[in-house]
Simulated scan of single mutants.
Amino acid sequence: MEAIQRLTGVLERKLGKKIPLHEVGYETMTFTHEEIDEEYVPPYMIAFVEEPILCHSANYTDVEGNYYTLMLVEIGGETPYEVWLVNDKLILHFNSVENE
Rank of each mutant, 00 (worst) to 15 (best):
M1Y: 07
M1R: 13
E2Y: 07
A3H: 08
A3S: 15
A3G: 11
Q5I: 08
R6C: 12
L7D: 06
L7W: 06
L7T: 07
L11R: 01
E12M: 05
L15C: 00
L15M: 06
G16N: 05
G16K: 03
G16M: 08
K18Q: 03
K18T: 06
I19V: 05
I19F: 00
P20W: 04
L21E: 11
G25T: 01
G25M: 02
Y26I: 05
Y26D: 00
Y26T: 01
E27S: 09
E27Y: 05
T28A: 14
T28I: 15
T30W: 09
T30F: 14
F31M: 04
F31E: 02
T32M: 02
T32Q: 03
E34A: 13
E34K: 08
E34Q: 10
E35D: 05
E35F: 01
D37L: 09
E38W: 01
E39A: 09
Y40M: 08
V41I: 12
V41W: 08
V41S: 05
P42N: 07
P42L: 08
P43S: 04
P43C: 03
P43M: 04
P43V: 06
M45S: 10
M45W: 12
M45H: 10
M45L: 13
I46M: 10
I46T: 09
A47L: 13
A47Q: 12
F48V: 01
F48I: 01
V49M: 10
V49D: 02
E50K: 12
E51W: 11
E51F: 11
P52C: 07
L54D: 06
C55K: 12
H56K: 13
S57L: 15
A58M: 09
A58Q: 11
T61Y: 05
T61V: 15
D62H: 00
D62Q: 03
D62N: 14
D62P: 01
V63R: 15
V63M: 11
E64V: 08
G65C: 02
G65F: 10
G65K: 10
Y67A: 09
Y67N: 14
Y67E: 14
Y68D: 03
T69D: 04
T69M: 11
T69H: 00
L70K: 13
M71R: 15
M71W: 09
E74N: 14
I75P: 04
I75E: 07
P80G: 09
P80R: 07
Y81P: 10
E82T: 10
V83S: 07
L85M: 12
L85H: 01
N87D: 14
N87H: 06
D88E: 14
K89C: 05
L90S: 02
L90F: 12
I91V: 15
I91P: 02
H93Y: 13
F94W: 11
F94Q: 11
N95K: 04
S96Q: 15
E100L: 15
